[in-house]
Computed example of a mutant assay.
Amino acid sequence: MSFFKKLRESISSKTEAVTQKFKEGLSKTRSAFVEKVEDLITRRKKIDEEFYEELEEILIGADVGVNTVVKLIEELRAEVRKRKIEQPAELQPILSEKLVGLLKDDQSSELRLAESGLTVILFVGVNGVGKTTTIGKLAHRYKQQGKHVLLAAGDTFRAAAIDQLEVWGKRVGVDVIKQQPGSDPAAVMFDAIQAAKTRKADILLCDTAGRLQNKANLMDELNKIYRVIGREIPDAPHEVLLVIDATTGQNALSQAKLFGEKTGVTGLVLTKLDSTAKGGIVIAIRQELSLPVKLVGLGEKMDDLQDFDSDQFVHALFAGLIAAETNEE
Rank of each mutant, 00 (worst) to 15 (best):
M1R: 14
F3T: 07
F3Y: 13
K5R: 14
S12R: 14
T19L: 08
S27D: 08
S27F: 07
S27N: 13
K28M: 15
S31Q: 15
K36L: 09
K36T: 03
E38S: 11
E38M: 13
L40R: 01
K45P: 11
K45H: 13
K46G: 11
I47T: 02
E49S: 14
F51R: 05
I58G: 08
A62K: 03
A62G: 15
V66Y: 15
K71E: 14
R77H: 15
Q87G: 06
P88A: 01
A89M: 03
E90H: 12
S96E: 14
S96C: 13
L103T: 06
K104Y: 10
I121C: 02
F123A: 07
F123E: 05
V126L: 15
G136P: 11
A139E: 01
H140N: 10
R141L: 12
K147Y: 04
L150G: 00
D155E: 02
D155S: 02
T156L: 11
A160T: 08
L165I: 09
E166I: 00
V167I: 15
G169K: 05
R171S: 04
S183T: 02
P185N: 12
A186I: 02
M189H: 04
I193P: 07
A195E: 15
R199N: 14
A201L: 10
G210S: 05
R211P: 06
D220W: 09
L222T: 03
R227D: 07
V228E: 01
V228A: 00
I229E: 06
G230P: 07
R231M: 06
E232F: 08
P234W: 06
A236M: 01
H238E: 08
L241S: 01
A246S: 15
A246G: 14
T247D: 00
T247I: 00
T247L: 03
N251T: 09
S254H: 13
Q255L: 10
K257P: 01
K262F: 07
T266V: 05
L270T: 03
T271R: 07
A277N: 05
P292L: 10
P292S: 08
P292C: 08
K294D: 13
V296N: 10
M302G: 10
F308L: 11
F308H: 07
D311V: 04
A316Q: 07
L321Y: 09
N327H: 11
E329M: 08
